[in-house]
Amino acid sequence: MSVDWLPTAIVIALAMGFNYTNGFHDAANSVATSVSTRALTPRVALLLAAAANLIGALFGTRVAQTVGSGIIDAPHGTTGLTICAAALIGAVSWNLMTWWRGLPSSSSHALIGGLGGAALAAGASVHWSVVLERVVIPMLVSPALGLVVGYAVMTAILWIFRDAAPGRIGRGFRLAQTVSASAVAFGHGMQDAAKTAGVVVLALTVGGFHNDVDESVPLWVLALSAVVMSLGTYAGGWRIMRTLGARIIDLDPPRGFAAEVTAASILFVATALRAPISTTHAITSAIMGAGATRRVRAVRWAVAADIGWAWLLTFPGAGLLAAAAYLVLAAVT
């Protein structure tokens, strides 16, 4: 039996607000490297990323199912909808805080941390085994893979093109970055728009408008998430773009290409495994790995440390904000 449609509609609107902030917060993930190497102009890069995000979101059903039914057991009715609303408020608040500081934190972990924090505040069950298997372990493994694979891919490029003229190589990899940046944006759409779609499905389920034994994700939910994220992506995330594109290391086209290929590969594999990983973790660690081939000191590790702290604090920080939001919402409803 469904509750009144208005609370469910409000939660869906909050989900789209989060999705929009996710778009401009994580837009830098797929375009910063191409912009910093002058492979693409900022607006062309953002338009390309928005289009790839839109298409990629339609292929993220597996991740949407994990977020929508695998993280928490939200009770049906008003309490479940309040949990969803509080989780989104916590995630949006964390996104805005880190965006203002120019730190590329994980919108994915902000959302999942928000779900966990709100559920705990409400006394609802959290599937800790799923969180460990599909969130915490990938959260630790994906940056390590980004560093190692990014270094390996760039080392292979240096060896293959060791006798080529630098100017010709630079031009060739600038063109190649159009494809590699699109691949990262496609993977970002599969991951991040799908996570928001999963929360919308959760809200529809606890509101009584979706059958919780039916694991299908309605096409209109994926399409709406994709469109809103694309709009957010095109709005741009210039503060974070500067951090990823210039503050970690001065990128050249071959290293930008190596980082993007590495990040896209990690995103594709994670999506196939239904693991909701962070696009931010994948691309940032890949940039560090590719950059370290120049020399280890070429990476500005102090900036990397600031980003690392933001990564570590995201899950508990968004969870605490969501728990506080739940207590406030529960008191006034």
Results as ranks from 00 to 15, higher is better:
residue 165 A to D: 14
residue 127 H to K: 12
residue 3 V to D: 13
residue 286 A to I: 12
residue 282 A to V: 07
residue 103 L to C: 05
residue 303 V to M: 10
residue 60 G to W: 01
residue 115 L to S: 07
residue 91 A to Q: 01
residue 128 W to E: 04
residue 320 L to N: 08
residue 107 S to I: 03
residue 120 L to M: 10
residue 146 G to E: 02
residue 163 D to S: 03
residue 259 A to Y: 03
residue 52 A to R: 03
residue 31 V to W: 08
residue 93 S to H: 04
residue 245 G to F: 13
residue 98 T to W: 07
residue 55 I to P: 04
residue 178 T to K: 00
residue 127 H to S: 13
residue 51 A to Q: 08
residue 129 S to K: 13
residue 29 N to T: 10
residue 198 G to E: 02
residue 239 R to G: 06
residue 218 P to S: 04
residue 40 L to C: 04
residue 290 A to M: 05
residue 274 R to S: 15
residue 263 A to T: 06
residue 202 L to N: 12
residue 211 N to G: 04
residue 249 I to S: 09
residue 272 A to V: 07
residue 25 H to D: 11
residue 59 F to I: 10
residue 305 A to D: 08
residue 245 G to E: 09
residue 136 V to E: 03
residue 317 G to V: 10
residue 311 W to E: 07
residue 328 V to E: 02
residue 42 P to V: 07
residue 1 M to E: 15
residue 66 T to M: 02
residue 281 H to G: 10
residue 190 M to K: 10
residue 209 F to T: 06
residue 158 L to D: 15
residue 83 I to E: 05
residue 287 I to S: 06
residue 182 S to I: 01
residue 325 A to G: 07
residue 282 A to G: 00
residue 91 A to G: 03
residue 260 E to G: 02
residue 61 T to G: 11
residue 263 A to E: 05
residue 91 A to S: 12
residue 267 L to T: 14
residue 107 S to W: 00
residue 148 V to L: 13
residue 331 A to D: 14
residue 37 T to D: 10
residue 305 A to Q: 11
residue 72 I to P: 00
residue 328 V to F: 10
residue 169 I to R: 03
residue 99 W to I: 06
residue 274 R to P: 09
residue 56 G to V: 01
residue 169 I to M: 13
residue 130 V to W: 01
residue 327 L to W: 06
residue 78 T to S: 14
residue 143 P to S: 06
residue 107 S to M: 08
residue 258 A to D: 00
residue 216 S to R: 14
residue 166 P to R: 01
